[in-house]
């Protein structure tokens, strides 16, 4: 059924940031187009999937990995970071301390994961809850982004569906660019499954071009 598309890509995108800044809302809004004020943690799900027909030749499957409020003290497992191609760091405009935490999250991210050739992951910052506090943007944000090689930052609102698509598109554009320059992940490691024939995966997991 995907014969129409010359290539189908799989991107793992991380959505990180402090507890309660709206990560899950953003993911739900982007992946499902819905919003609710009382999300419960989605038990048992690692990520939400969103499929985009990027252009007539390319279909992108985006895995949005939520930290789901579980590993909430900022110590994420290697499983969470591995093979990510981009990240969005979210903070809450109504809580200045969550912006301070952005640099902690960024440090942890830079420390734990980079693209195969050592290049840092493309990162955007989402200033969320823009529907109630769009005027409370931290003055340092512009400088912070420049200093830390942040691709861009956006005032978003998951509630009013503001800027989320354009922010994510920008991030995907960066990931696509990296994908074009390098054939990202390529290993002949094994994913264990019932029998050996489903064994070797040649980067079938992520970033596969068909």
């Amino acid at each position: 059924m995907c014969d129409l598309f010359k290539r189908e890509l799989l991107f793992k995108v991380l959505v990180i940031g402090d507890f309660g800044v709206g990560k899950t809302s953003i993911i739900k809004r982007y992946a499902e187009g819905t919003f609710s004020t009382k999300y419960k943690i989605t038990i048992g799900a690692d990520f939400a999937l969103k499929q985009i027909d990027w252009d007539s030749e390319t279909r992108i499957n985006i895995q949005l990995w939520d930290i789901a409020g579980h590993e909430r003290f900022g110590y994420l497992t290697s499983v969470y970071y591995r093979y990510a191609v981009a990240a969005a760091i979210v903070f809450d405009l109504t809580r200045p301390d969550t912006f301070v935490a952005v640099s902690k999250w960024l440090n942890d991210l830079r420390d734990k994961v980079s693209l195969p050739h050592g290049k840092p992951l493309p990162v955007i910052i989402l200033a969320n809850k823009g529907d109630v506090a769009a005027n409370k943007v931290p003055v340092q944000i512009e400088e912070f982004c420049k200093k830390n090689q942040i691709v861009s930052w956006y005032i978003t609102s998951a509630k009013e569906n503001r800027n989320i698509d354009s922010a994510m598109n920008r991030l995907i554009l960066e990931a696509l660019e990296n994908q074009r320059n390098n054939n990202l992940y390529n290993s002949d490691s094994l994913m264990l499954a019932e029998e050996a024939n489903s064994g070797t995966h040649n980067s079938s997991r992520l970033c596969c071009s068909r």
Partner: peptide
């Protein structure tokens, strides 16, 4: 964690 376990390191 995905099934709701709360993680706290460096405590």
């Amino acid at each position: 964690a995905v099934f709701g376990g709360v993680y706290a390191l460096n405590q």
